[in-house]
Design a protein around this nucleic acid. Structure first.
Lengths: 312, 312
DNA sequence: CGAGGCGATATCCAGGAGATATCGTTGGCG
DNA sequence: CGCCAACGATATCTCCTGGATATCGCCTCG
């Protein structure tokens, strides 16, 4: 039995007339008679009563037609669902990102994405660069935003694009001696208690910090000590109440509150760039849509993305 | 798009391998490749990723497959539903009957029918012979049990079979003078208050009664008066409390309670027979099943039914 | 009782589903 | 590093079957 038989039976039930049903189907009347007869033979049951006043479904026909309608509805839904999924209008996008992405990149992109793709289920999870890279390779994420290009086993299966480049800034409370300064020198930082991201989660920042403070077991002691804070808002919060000097990426400026001051660090310390990564073989249209929007909303990213996507 | 494409896509998703999926489908591998390619071309979307490790559905493929499974399930349900309906295992049987049928005929048949055909929705409605005949012709009933063969317009479209033949009996309370008698003569009845079915609903009984009491406007006055009761239990109830003498078909014996006595009327008055009617062109398997059971449970009916059904 | 409408049947044709053979690519393994 | 095996895609041919045309049989209605 093919879906053709369902379509023919439904047309016949609708028109109650072989000739008109066949015309509506775009075929001649004899093939319709044959197909209906073949269907009835296969089912071993008469589906239609051919009377002088018209063609009417039997009880078996009614039961069959009810199911047939649903079957055809499912089939056309299959087509439209597949189309929507292929166009990226439905589906899922699982995104792992470091907190910094929440300050500039994601606000610029997510709003447009959610408005344009209301049918897409977005999964957002803040996580360290290390974890998001691993989750991406394991297929648990579709997109990762981290700091520094992924390295290590499997990294060659990923496409990574720089989506932001920033440097270190210092955050202090309004009452702090640095508060009035536009710049803070490295020398000035050396005596201060520092608030930074944990070394194991942001190794590149930690490495720079080690260079600043000097290597060795006694490093924190040479300075004013180090407090580790997991996210930007905590760094700012701690700085605002005078715990110490917060150090973090430029995007801390966006999260800054009225009661803190953000100072440039002089000389400028470039941080590993913000990198967006996805699986090179991932052809997901939802991902493509997200990348499209990223391209539109972040002009600087466009050409770098083109280079990678062009090769796909 | 045909259901073949759905089956092929599902097989491919299941086996994740063109060759094995084709083997499972009983076809060679190239046709499967072609059909999948044609499906993807028609949808304008790639449904499967052909990788070195196997063939996996894309997001669009997942969406399509989910609908495809349901569509095929509906199709096979259409087949089995039609089969069940054709075998009379599901469906509906609307039955209109006079109360007398509840006393012997229906108890003998309904139990078996309900047990044998649990999937059939039974519609039972007590109604007069006149109403059930009209409803049958209007297509509002599938089967009617009444007294006397249907007459009038449309009666020739009905098949009617006698399913019971009975005569008049009298019912009296245990304290009534007739209570000890096995027979009551017509002469004895003439002075009594009679309890009978309404004339407009059971014209044949009423006609007999008119003959018994004599025609004319003053008929009730010549006897002890007439009370009309719509059903057997009411007749018996009224008789038991001494209102008068109940008159009704033999099957009143079945409904008789300990506090009433049933007497034969002498000489015997034959009542119009109980008749089961259905539309001659009705090929409903549920109706056929009901008639089958009637044939089994009521041996006397069998040959009369055969005669009618043989000509269908 | 004849005409017209309708579904079934007979016959022929062509499109396409499927079979066979082969190719191109890729991944694994010696 | 290169060969081989596996797998999906492609090419070509065959044959089935869905569909078109012509016609028949039957029923209804004027």
């Amino acid at each position: 039995m093919e879906s053709r038989h369902l379509r023919y039976a439904l047309a016949l039930a609708e028109h109650q007339h072989f000739g008109r049903a066949a015309a509506a189907l775009g075929i001649a009347q004899p093939p319709l008679s044959q197909q209906i007869a073949a269907l009835e033979r296969e089912l071993g049951a008469r589906l239609f009563d051919r009377t002088a006043r018209g063609v009417f479904p039997t009880a078996a026909g009614e039961a069959f037609l009810a199911r047939a309608r649903r079957a055809l509805a499912e089939m056309s839904a299959a087509v439209s669902d597949a189309g929507r999924a292929a166009r990226g209008e439905t589906g899922r996008l699982r995104l792992g990102f470091i907190g910094s992405a929440l300050l500039e990149l994601l606000p610029a992109v997510l709003g447009t994405f959610i408005r344009d793709r209301p049918g897409v289920r977005l999964g957002l999870q803040e996580m360290s660069t290390r974890r998001s890279t691993a989750a991406l390779l394991a297929g648990e994420l579709d997109l990762a935003i981290g700091r520094g290009a992924p390295r290590g086993a499997g990294a060659e299966d990923l496409v990574s694009v720089t989506v932001g480049r920033d440097h270190l800034v210092a955050v202090v409370g309004a009452a702090h001696p640095f508060a009035g300064q536009a710049k803070v020198s490295l020398e000035q930082l050396k005596g201060q208690h520092l608030i930074v991201a944990p070394a194991e989660e942001e190794p590149t920042v930690a490495a720079w910090l080690a260079g600043l403070l000097g290597e060795g077991a006694d490093t924190p002691a040479r300075a004013g000590g180090v407090t580790e804070a997991w996210d930007a808002h905590t760094i700012i919060g701690l700085a605002s109440c005078g715990v110490g000097v917060g150090l973090g990426p430029t995007c801390l400026r966006v999260a800054a509150r009225p009661d803190v001051r953000v100072c440039e660090v002089s000389p400028r310390v470039e941080l590993p760039e913000l990198v967006m990564s996805f699986r090179a073989q991932d052809r997901s249209p939802v991902l493509a849509a997200f990348l499209d929007i990223t391209r539109e909303r972040c002009p600087g990213v466009a050409d770098r993305l083109e280079r990678h996507l062009g090769t796909r």
